[in-house]
Simulated scan of single mutants.
Amino acid sequence: MIRLLNMDIYCEYILHNKPPIIFIHGFVSSVYTFRRIIPLLSKHFSIIAIDLPGFGRSVKSISFIYTYENYGKLIAACIEHFQLEKAFLVGHSMGGQIALNTTKIVPERIDKLVLLSSSGYLDKAKRWQRYCSYLPFCEIAVNYVLNKKSVPDNLKNVFYDHSLISEDLIEEFGRPLKEKNFNKSMMRLLRYREGDLTSEQLKSIDKSILLIWGREDNVVPFHIGMKLKEDLPNSELIAYDKTGHLITEERAEAVSEQIFTFFRDS
């Protein structure tokens, strides 16, 4: 654990005399998302991967204001904690939006970004959703929605190749759902989520960005990647056929090679 913004944050890191990458996972996920690509990239880069507040093994805070901006400030605090002059960012799904927010907050500390199946263009929580988050029954409703489908069914939605779904994956992705205060933290995320960056905001980000997508992504469809490519002025887009949302599992070696090549050429 490390201490960031007065919270206990689970962190895995491999530090040596090589350029650092900070990995940022997505919604209802953890550093486990990157388990297959970190070993491949750790030969060439220092590695820092954290579980965001509310997820994985990090604190399920019932006081943290769960916004992308505050998550971005947390990543900025992580950069300070490890005394990094600059860092590369790799964000998956919601983690892509957090990486972009971090870049807006501390642009001088960010080198390049890789966005894997990044969320994009989602509106902020509706007024009635924010209002309902204060009502006593909301936690029950959140629990119902999160557990409406079984963990294997949810994993089928993020994989194109269902044969890759293992017992280890089911156990790891199911574990946080049972933790104390998980529902409360998700309720607060619903309450405070301010929405994804707009096209205008994206166009102001001049960092080199690599977008990597699965063409069969059922969570963040490929057309979102194409729109991000249009709005991010210094970006390129790579897509893989027969690949779903959890691209770090289905295309680990190819994704690692793309990240290595992109960051190596800095």
Rank of each mutant, 00 (worst) to 15 (best):
M7T: 03
L116R: 06
P20K: 02
E179F: 02
L89M: 14
L15W: 12
I209H: 11
S256M: 01
V151R: 09
P176R: 06
V220D: 15
S61H: 08
R36D: 13
S204R: 15
K180T: 01
L211Q: 06
R191W: 05
L116M: 12
L40F: 00
H92V: 11
Y192G: 08
S118N: 02
F262N: 04
K126Q: 14
T243N: 03
V145M: 14
S30V: 02
P19V: 05
L52N: 05
K60C: 03
I165S: 05
A125E: 13
P136T: 04
A49T: 01
Q258L: 14
I209K: 09
N6Y: 03
K73D: 06
S93K: 14
S118D: 03
E236V: 00
Y240K: 01
A99D: 04
V90Y: 00
E80W: 01
F82C: 12
G214F: 05
G195A: 12
R127S: 15
L197T: 11
S117H: 15
W213F: 15
R193Q: 12
E249G: 05
H245D: 10
I38C: 06
K178R: 14
P19Q: 05
I21C: 03
E171C: 05
V114H: 03
N101Q: 15
V59R: 10
L146N: 12
I38Y: 05
H25S: 04
D123K: 08
V90M: 00
I22Y: 08
A87V: 15
I21D: 02
S93Y: 14
D168G: 12
I209T: 13
Q129R: 10
T33C: 02
E230I: 00
F34I: 02
S199I: 07
Y160E: 08
